[in-house]
């Protein structure tokens, strides 16, 4: 290599025909590589989603039963209407909204964590996350 013209350039084996750069951004339709990070993100999001749903739905499901078990409490008058009425007609909506807000924040935090894990390089500059990372690296 030091003396051009004297030797033929050394052959290089081509191992990749498609540049991997930028495939982090490709839509899911492309044959993309699912990494352990993707799976753990999905798991984290599912956990968050199920928690948020249960926090709202379980008390709601319990309300009719409560009405059956404790008719007195449900009928307790507040400002001329029973307590159960206020809970169902007004009280539930702020709760649902707050849970939704909390959920969005949590889901975006999970995505931020994911970006930090896979995106040590600037977006598009790196390879897509894949499973051929050094073993022992924590997810």
């Amino acid at each position: 290599m030091t003396e051009p013209g004297r030797r033929r350039p050394q052959r290089v084996r081509v191992t990749r025909t498609v540049p991997l750069r930028g495939r982090v951004t490709s839509p899911p339709r492309s044959p993309d590589v699912v990494s352990v990070y993707d799976r753990s993100l999905r798991r984290a999001q599912l956990r968050g989603s199920v928690t948020s749903v249960l926090v709202v739905v379980l008390p709601l499901l319990a309300l009719p039963v409560l009405g059956v078990l404790l008719p007195g409490a449900a009928a307790l008058p507040v400002l001329g209407l029973p307590l159960a009425w206020w809970l169902l007609a007004v009280g539930v909506y702020p709760v649902i909204w707050l849970v939704g807000r909390r959920h969005v924040a949590g889901a975006e935090r999970s995505e931020e964590d994911y970006r930090e894990l896979v995106g040590e390089r600037a977006p598009g500059q790196g390879r897509p996350p894949s499973q051929d990372r050094p073993p022992g690296e924590r997810t």
């Binding site: 540049p19 750069r21 930028g22 982090v24 951004t25 899911p28 339709r29 993309d32 699912v34 993707d38 799976r39 993100l41 999905r42 999001q45 995505e111 994911y114 970006r115 977006p123 598009g124 500059q125």
Partner: peptide, 21 residues
């Protein structure tokens, strides 16, 4: 046809210009 884990992958921040091809 679609691996579900990919549906949860966040987009890169908007304004990002995808590199060549």
């Amino acid at each position: 046809p679609v691996q579900t884990a990919l549906l949860h992958r966040p987009e890169v921040p908007t304004g990002y210009v995808p590199p060549s091809p």
